[in-house]
Design a binder for these strands. Sequence first.
DNA 1: CGTCTTTGACCCGCGC
DNA 2: GCGCGGGTCAAAGACG
Length: 330
Amino acid sequence: MDDDKYNRDPASTTEFTTQSTWPLDPDSAYFFASHDVRDNTLLTEFGWNFHPDGSRPDGFSELDPIGTRDMSDLAATSSQLVADCLRPADSSSSSTAAFRSSDPAPAVGSASTNPSGSSTSSEDPPEKSTGSGGKPPPEIPSKVKKKGQKRIRQPRFAFMTKSEVDHLEDGYRWRKYGQKAVKNSPFPRSYYRCTNSKCTVKKRVERSSEDPTIVITTYEGQHCHHTVAFPRGGVIAQESGFAGHHLAQLPPVSSHFMYYPAIQPRERVSPVNLTRTTSHQLASPRGDDDDDDDQAAGAGSSHCLNPQTTSVPADEGLLGDIVPPGMRNR
DNA sequence: CGTCTTTGACCCGCGC
DNA sequence: GCGCGGGTCAAAGACG
């Protein structure tokens, strides 16, 4: 059904931007400071070579893609990035680990760290208290909700993508479970949940009210399984797959990635702004099998939903400090 | 028939 | 306490 969506080629030129607009809610911990080594690590992992001081005169730093890629690649890249971020820590890829597990800090005392909830493991879901509808929680909740108990938010990772397609493929299968109108925005926000029964990762997709061409995707939680498969004919991000690795194999394309200077006076962040001309979207959402997921999940389940939050803020295009005040310099 | 989307209703947290 | 907005549920329908 959505095949159209996934297969459809967005207009030719797509500017890709990663940013996060997610409000830094207290429940979430954010780490991902642009000046933090992790940033570079992350970027590197995804195939970007960041030149820390190679900033350009105009104040921008450039990310050199490992080879050029076309939009699909880009999409894949971004998706991959997200995928990696959300992937189980057991993954052999060291890089991922670095970004994810090696970061205890993020847990930032927030709820995410929260012991309770986050138990997170798929094995013992904290009971979702009726998350919302007052209905029995089918599964692990992203927020815990016992009365009197504060909800726990899973780590979030948000980024903005300039695309005509709302739902970007990221290698995982998602099921839409809701849509809501967003205040002050003509565009609705869609809620997706990973189809893996053991995975509690959710993602929200909405368009920027300011710039309708920008899609804001926010991931919450961490996959306890590996990606299913990448877009038809695309790269599979399973285990070893590392963005950097396979990205390097992707076809070259002329592209241009910009990394905006981080350091912002603001508390929130900013993101990496990637711009490129492009071509198509990532693809098919459905992987061939969930089985893999489940199995993988089993293996990595214990890492599910690590309390970490990464967020790429919005506006300004700066990769930034997504670290909440106080968390900085961690 | 199974999977996924749509959509209205409900619940919860938060600000006033 | 009330209202608003966000988030989630689940029935119904669509689709392959």
